[in-house]
Design a protein around this nucleic acid. Structure first.
Lengths: 155, 155
DNA sequence: TAAAAATGTTAAACGCGTCTAACATTTTAG
DNA sequence: CTAAAATGTTAGACGCGTTTAACATTTTTA
C-alpha cells in the first residue's frame, strides 16, 4: 500500500493527475488493483477519492507518503553514491527495502549519507579508498600508509 | 521461504534437529505452516523431508541457505557496527531486508563492511567522526579541520 | 505394553494483493 | 448530440502464506 501512496505523491508533484490509469501505468499493475487499493487507502483516511475522479492525499497520507519517499531516496543515494551500485538496480532495491526499514535505521542511514556526502569538503578520502578496494579487492597503499600513520606507535 | 531455509541451517548447525516443532518455535509460526513450507521446499529440491522426521538441506538448499544467512549477517553488521542501530532492531531489519537485496548490492555491502571493519588498523577515524555526528548532529571540529587539511588549497 | 503426551499432517478457511471479464461512466470527436 | 473511445468499477477467481480444528503418528512413561 505504501507504494501506492508514493506513486500518488510523485504523480501529484509532477504534471500528471493521480488517476487510476496513471497510477496503473506507473506501478505496472492492472486498473482493478488500483481501484481496490484506492478504496482501502480512502477507508484508512490517507487519501480522498471521488468515484471516477482523482486521488488526493490527506494531510496524514501526505505525511506517510513523504516519509516513504524519503526512505526511498536515502536508500537510493546510499546505494548509488557510496556502494556504487548501478542506478537502475539501486532504484529497484530501494523500492523494495523502503518498506522494511525501521524508523531508527532509516534515520541513521539518512545521517550517514549526509555525513558522507554533505561534508564541508565533499567526498572524503576514505570513500575514494573504498572505491579502490572495490575495484582491486585490496586496500590501496595510500590507505595502508594512512592507517599506519593514524594509528601511530600503537600499530 | 528463504526464512525457512535459514532457520533450518541455523537449527542444524546448533544442537537442535530441524523438526517441525523447532522450526515452528524458531519462526513464531504454527506447525501447519511449517509442514506446508517443508513440502514446498522438498518439491523444489532444497530439502529432504521424511514424513514425521527431520528436514535436511540438499546441497542446493544448503547453498541458498548460506547465501541468505550471509546477507543477513552482512546487513546486521552494517546496521550495528557502522550505523550503531540497536542490536535487536538491527537483527529484525536485517531479517526483512535480506530477502529484498539484490546480489550486487549484497556483494557491495559485504565489501563495504569488510573495508570499514577489517582494515589493517581497525576502526577508522571517520567512523569515530560519524559517531560524533550522530550524537551531536554536526561535524566535529577535528573533522572539519581534517577536511580542510585534506583538501589543501582547493578549500 | 497400553495409555498419555508430544509431535506431525490434513482439510478448510482467511486476508492480501493481484488478475480477467464484464459492465458503467465520462470524455472525445465527428 | 450522439457514437466511439477512454477511463473507471464490480464481480469472481487465483496464489501465497497463514490460521484453526480435527485427525494421525510417534514417543514417553507408568
Amino acid at each position: 500500500m505504501e507504494d501506492y501512496l508514493e506513486t500518488i505523491v510523485l504523480l501529484s508533484e509532477g504534471d500528471k493527475a493521480a488517476r487510476v490509469t496513471e497510477i496503473s501505468k506507473a506501478r505496472g499493475v492492472k486498473k482493478p488493483s488500483v481501484t481496490s487499493a484506492l478504496t482501502k487507502l480512502a477507508q484508512e483516511g490517507l487519501i480522498e477519492h471521488e468515484r471516477y475522479g482523482q486521488a488526493k492525499l490527506t494531510a496524514k497520507g501526505e505525511r506517510i507518503a513523504q516519509d516513504v519517499f524519503h526512505r526511498h531516496e536515502t536508500l537510493r543515494h546510499f546505494l548509488t553514491e557510496i556502494l556504487k551500485v548501478d542506478p537502475e538496480i539501486a532504484a529497484n532495491d530501494a523500492c523494495k527495502m523502503e518498506h522494511t526499514v525501521s524508523p531508527v535505521t532509516s534515520e541513521r542511514l539518512t545521517k550517514f549519507v549526509e555525513f558522507v556526502l554533505n561534508r564541508p569538503q565533499g567526498e572524503p578520502d576514505w570513500l575514494k579508498n573504498f572505491n579502490y578496494y572495490l575495484e582491486h579487492g585490496k586496500f590501496s597503499k595510500e590507505c595502508v600508509i594512512k592507517c599506519q600513520r593514524e594509528s601511530g606507535r600503537k600499530g
